[in-house]
Design a protein around this nucleic acid. Structure first.
Length: 400
DNA sequence: ATGTAC
């Protein structure tokens, strides 16, 4: 009953390049392993790389007619969105004196594992066909309750000031207020990922140990087609999630955006590279085709970059999705002190509403160095400086 | 990243 392509060792690994120096060795090894798969066509490792399940975070992998659930990631369609408001920065500072922006964030999205709205949000993504997979079908109500929520881990909602340098963005270059969010497909996406990772592993019992987490589904198999449809639905759902977050926060403040920029950074796409149609998995990597806009955050106290892709073939039209961790969550909890983080936040003029100690700026690489390492992949067109930051509080419990 | 249970 198995119509999957089976593993056979290949003569030479698929070509692979990496950006940035001193990348974590384990993540480099994970990327090499991925290039040993018979379905792999090309790989690329971004300068924010760190270890993940199967493919590393910051890993990009093109395959032929196969999709690898763990090369998309657990948070399917994890995504960035940035909205620009044409109001003076001093209004962010002045109104925040009365707590208006804080109140809008606190009221209009929810943080924490399992967080949901009792009064559910509305969005046309709910009118899509959720029966494409048994998982999405069963989770539709949970997905509805979690629409407009932010979740936990490295997810955030921030207000800040943005310096727009490039007139081609469609607004006059200058300084504006912006809202930036990082969220994904929440519990439903995690359930989709988990279900199809199990099916992929069951389809490939022949894989050696180091490749088991890279088990694939042939695109024309039933499970492969289900996964693809569910993944695409999770793509729309994650976009809807951000749309709700931005709509409700902006309406709460009586603001209307003049510009929106957004992108998935955990997803798979059908693309043509070197004349071949391939499945490009980007797991913690920003699409960077020629002229394509994306958002690359740094940390709660360092700039985020709005970038324009240069269409590098060797990177499979990709760039990093952030600065990348330099320290595990566990190590951060044991080594770091809130007092040191608070001093840095004060120096940088950042008001932090809540976060875990494992997300403070010290756990991330210097975003400017990461941007320098990928100057052949993207150019910066705007810089965003966080001023008011909300992440899931320590313990990551829902707030109410 | 999620939120249940080798």
């Amino acid at each position: 009953m198995n119509n999957e392509t089976q593993f056979v060792p290949r003569e030479a690994p698929a070509p692979c390049r990496q950006w940035g120096e001193d990348l974590d060795e384990m993540s480099v090894q994970q990327m090499k392993n991925a290039c040993d798969l018979p379905v792999s066509v090309r790989g690329a490792l971004m300068p924010d790389a760190h270890v993940g399940y199967g493919l590393p975070i910051g890993g990009v992998l093109a395959t032929e007619n196969a999709v690898i659930p763990y090369a998309v990631g657990v948070d399917i369609a994890c995504r960035m969105k940035l909205s620009v408001f044409d109001i003076p920065v001093k209004r962010l500072l002045r109104d925040e004196g009365k707590g208006r922006f804080t109140e809008a964030i606190q009221k209009e999205t929810k943080f924490g594992v399992g967080a949901f709205f009792r009064e559910k949000r509305e969005h046309y993504v709910l009118d899509r066909d959720w029966s494409v997979s048994p998982v999405t079908q069963e989770c539709k109500d949970k997905a509805w309750k979690q629409l407009g929520t932010s979740g936990s881990g490295n997810h955030f909602v921030e207000f800040g000031e943005i310096e727009i340098r490039d007139a081609s963005l469609g607004v006059e270059p200058g300084t504006y207020v912006a809202l930036m969010s990082h969220s994904g497909s929440r519990g439903t996406g995690a359930n989709v990922a988990s279900h199809y990772c199990k099916l992929a592993r069951a389809a490939h019992p022949e894989l050696p140990k180091e490749l088991q987490h890279l088990s694939w589904l042939d695109l024309d198999s039933e499970a492969g087609q289900e996964y693809w449809a569910a993944m695409e639905l999770m793509g729309e759902y994650a976009a809807a999630n951000h749309a709700c977050i931005h709509k409700h926060i902006a309406e709460n403040l009586g603001l209307e955006p003049v510009l929106d920029i957004e992108n998935h950074h955990n997803f798979a796409w059908k693309e043509t590279h070197d004349g071949q149609e391939v499945i490009v998995h980007r797991k913690g990597a920003t699409p960077a085709g020629k002229g394509v806009l994306g958002v690359i955050p740094g940390s709660m106290a360092s700039p985020a970059y709005v970038v324009r892709g240069k269409g590098s073939v060797q990177s499979l039209h990709s760039a990093s999705h952030g600065a990348g961790r330099v320290m595990s969550r566990k190590k951060a909890q044991s080594k770091l002190k809130w007092k040191d983080a608070q001093r840095l936040l004060k120096d940088r003029g950042v008001n932090l509403l809540s976060a875990g100690l494992d997300e403070v700026p010290f756990v991330y690489k210097d975003i400017d160095q990461v941007m320098a390492a990928q100057s052949d992949l993207v150019e910066s067109v705007a810089r965003f400086f966080p001023r008011l930051v909300k992440m899931a509080p320590a313990g990551e419990r829902p707030e109410d």
